[in-house]
Design a protein around this nucleic acid. Structure first.
Length: 777
DNA sequence: TGATAAACTTAGAATCGGCAGA
DNA sequence: TCTGCCGATTCTAAGTTTATCA
């Protein structure tokens, strides 16, 4: 099945087509707008019903829930199913009529809150009771500050320990042959092949060459499930530098007149000024949010004067910052060196921690500076002020017996806790979404490396049972239960197309993006026949980071028919899988395989695809650059599968032209060299002496050298062109089992540096050390 | 059991910095 | 020595999954 991903030309072609997503932006904006309008209408209706039903709300809600429970528990409602379905249809019809008649737009409130019937053939007959609108979840949320104040360390779930034991047992059984090495250590299967002698060498290599502890980490004591460390010491975070007011000569103008701003207002104004050249500042939402938050920082006088953002002139400020950037570039070597040294000092002091017996690099030890929030896509909160984080916002996590970091003079931490069931060192709550931000360790750390390794081991376990799971979901396409069918079709998409799970999102809090479970009817089109193919589904939606997913995929007839069924009597804004969410799906997956979640399919399919593609594309006779091109192509196939797109680099056309002119020049050089060789040969034929023979040889070598250089350039051009809108890094870093790449390098004698840069080699040190050339994912 | 919080992974854009060629 | 390019690195947003609580 996973082969599907690769040989599906239409998909690849479509994905390439998808890359001009910006062309379709307007269409999407329009849709998004319509969806929002629709949701607004729903909200209004909810408000209405809230008022009219407020008295009965509680009791009817409870009743509904109870009925819902009973219905799902037993199959007693089966006999009523037909009636129910008819009623349901009737209701929808009514609504359709009302809607088309221009009546108040009321989103159909289905029984159980679902749009589709629970059973496919027969329908239970119930009252079609009204589902009360959801409470505004914002109101239900507890203030986070309280949470923090009453922090309790988490309990270790006994369940986890049981699970861990069980898994370990399985692994041990699986690895009987290799058991001698593993004993009490929890080492994932498949990585214990190495002969002791080689192990010693490897260990030594690590000690000598990298002075890295990595070699040891699977030799070390394992902690009980849930415990992440025993000792943790660090110096706390580095705060953003304080605001430096602008020099007197840098002016801000309002309505054409110079206006001196208060420090607070000025600081926020500089955030906008620094972004003046960015498209963001032209967007209405961005401007609106910025202005609203900016006004909060103004003095009453400023507030009464500055009432219109369009009358604000930030250009002078903007020019000042540009000049500063320029000046920074023009700094002398010494000045640059000084800055570099200061950064190194900071890194040395704050960039590392001690976790258990090891000094570990911290990923992000600097607190995010204040600024304007840059949401991706059509984010409703873009432009809002990201406030400055103070020590009083910071929670420090370290061990009791460590030297607790000191807050900056005159300040104190919000809290110091000692929770060794989490991996973060520092946390704070940001003000835009109210979410928690963390300072954690670098990917090269033990704690991250181990987790990464574990992730690929889970994906490898899926490999063993994926056929069974696929057969199961195929069976489920025929299920009598709507929920089961929807789950099976969604899983098919996740597996075949590597879609993300698709959690529900809070409306108005984020951009309108979806994943598999949250797909709406408007995101797919069904074509019984398209371009000579049967049963084609056309996907068009915005996924994570508002990256467009566009794909036309032929699917199996049963899937197609099911989709028709799921879409029946639904509005474009309705959920396609109205009886499914990620938690239902993941619970089901957990039953199929321990540790299985929707995400694992992406990892599995990405890695297996890389392995297959490498086998297919690597030509043993190729030289190293050509083999690397094959590797990149295999990587690209995965990136396409996972829809990892990037904006084409701004200088792309130019750099391609430069490369092309280099190629042309090289071709001319080659032609010259060949001419010279020809005449040298002719000369040697006449003279027949040693000197002319030698000349021929050296000319031959020159031709060869130039040919190689030309080939290298041409390969580079191909690679770059194919990579125009595809980002390889994401899949390389997050989805491809590094042991596949390491094994491939070893097999074909490719230096690992050609595939992984320094940082990547650090992150994948565990894999580089482990994998031999015969490693199989 | 469902909602929400917390923890952690995945993601693309922005920025940095080193190097090749003018 | 300067400039521009490009890969590396940093930054932080946006997901998924797990844990917790009512």
């Amino acid at each position: 099945m996973s082969g599907d991903h690769l040989h599906n030309d239409s998909q690849i072609e479509a994905d390439f087509r998808a890359n001009d997503s910006h062309k379709h932006k307007d269409k999407h904006k329009d849709r998004e707008h319509r969806h929002k309008e629709h949701k607004k209408d729903k909200e209004k209706d909810r408000e209405k019903s809230k008022h009219s039903n407020s008295e009965h709300k509680d009791s009817s809600e409870k009743k509904h829930k109870d009925k819902e429970k009973t219905k799902h528990k037993d199959g007693s409602s089966e006999k009523h199913k037909d009636k129910h379905k008819d009623k349901d249809k009737e209701k929808r019809k009514e609504e359709k009529i009302r809607l088309s008649a221009g009546d108040v737009k009321i989103k159909k409130e289905k029984e159980n809150g679902f749009s589709s019937p629970p059973r496919i053939k027969d329908e239970p007959d119930d009252d079609g009771f009204y589902v009360p609108p959801k409470e505004d979840s914002k109101l239900l949320k507890r203030p986070r500050e309280d949470d923090d104040a009453e922090y309790k360390p988490k309990k270790i779930k006994t369940e986890d320990i049981k699970k861990a034991k069980k898994r370990k047992q399985e692994e041990d059984e699986d690895n009987k042959a290799k058991k001698a090495k593993s004993k009490d250590k929890k080492v994932p299967e498949g990585d214990k092949k190495k002969k002791p002698k080689k192990e010693e060498e490897q260990k030594w290599k690590w000690i000598c060459v990298l002075n890295n502890w990595l070699t040891f980490w699977w030799e070390e004591e394992r902690y009980p499930e849930g415990i992440k460390w025993k000792f943790l010491e660090h110096k706390g975070p580095v705060f953003a530098p304080p605001y430096e007011p602008l020099p007197e000569n840098v002016k801000f103008y309002y309505d054409g007149k110079v206006m001196k701003l208060s420090t607070k207002a000025e600081e926020v104004a500089t955030f906008f000024a620094k972004m003046l050249d960015h498209e963001y500042t032209t967007k209405e939402i961005f401007r609106k949010n910025f202005f609203k938050d900016w006004r909060k920082e103004m003095t009453p006088e400023e507030k009464s004067t500055i009432t219109n953002l369009s009358k604000c002139d930030f250009t002078h400020m903007s020019q000042y910052f540009k000049a500063q950037t320029e000046a920074r570039k023009q700094m002398s070597k010494e000045e640059k060196q000084k800055i570099k040294e200061e950064n190194e000092r900071l890194l040395k002091e704050y960039g590392y921690c001690v976790m258990d017996n090891h000094k570990e690099r911290i990923a992000n030890f600097k607190i995010e500076p204040p600024g304007l929030f840059r949401g991706r896509g059509n984010h409703p909160k873009m432009g809002m002020l990201k406030r400055r984080i103070m020590p009083e916002d910071i929670i420090i996590n370290c061990s009791k017996d460590s030297k607790i970091p000191a807050p900056p003079p005159g300040h104190k931490w919000k809290e110091v806790r000692h929770d060794n069931k989490v991996t973060w060192l520092v946390s704070w709550t940001e003000n835009i979404q109210g979410s928690i931000k963390y300072i954690m360790l670098n990917p090269s750390s033990r704690i991250k490396g181990e987790k990464d390794w574990q992730k690929y081991e889970t994906a490898r376990r899926l490999k063993k049972c994926v056929d069974k799971i696929r057969n199961q979901y195929r069976e489920d396409w025929k299920s009598k239960e709507m929920k089961v069918r929807q789950r099976a079709v969604a899983l098919y998409f996740i597996d075949k197309l590597a879609l993300r799970a698709g959690n529900e999102k809070e409306e108005g809090e984020t951009a309108d993006t979806v994943g598999c479970c949250s797909l709406r009817v408007e995101h797919i089109k069904l074509h019984p026949e398209l371009d000579g193919q049967e049963y084609v589904v056309e996907f068009d939606f915005l996924g994570k980071d508002s990256i467009r997913y566009y794909n036309k995929v032929p699917v199996e007839k049963r899937v197609f028919k099911n989709l028709q069924l799921f879409m029946e009597n639904k509005q474009p804004e309705d959920d396609l899988f109205d009886r499914l969410n990620t938690s239902i799906l993941n619970k089901h997956l957990q039953d199929l395989m321990e540790g299985l979640t929707a995400k694992v399919f992406r990892t599995y399919n990405a890695s297996i695809t890389l392995q297959q593609q490498l086998k297919e594309l690597t030509n043993p006779d190729d030289n190293i650059p050509a083999k690397i091109l094959s590797y990149n192509r295999a990587n690209r196939a995965v990136a396409i599968l996972c829809n990892h797109q990037r904006a084409p680099p701004k200088t792309f056309e130019k750099s391609m032209m430069n490369l092309q002119s280099k190629i042309d020049a090289k071709k001319e050089q080659l032609a010259d060299a060949r001419r010279e060789l020809k005449s040298a040969k002719a000369d040697a034929k006449v003279r027949r002496d040693e000197k002319s023979k030698k000349t021929v040889e050296s000319k031959k070598k020159a031709v060869q050298r130039i040919e190689e250089q030309l080939m290298k350039l041409e390969v580079q051009a191909t690679d770059r062109e194919e990579n125009k809108q595809i980002a390889l890094g994401t899949s390389k870093l997050n989805y491809l089992d590094p042991r596949i790449s390491v094994a491939w390098c070893k097999k074909w004698g490719i230096p690992i540096e050609k595939i992984y840069n320094k940082t990547q080699r650090e992150k994948f040190a565990w894999a580089i050390d482990m994998a031999e050339e015969d490693y199989e994912f």
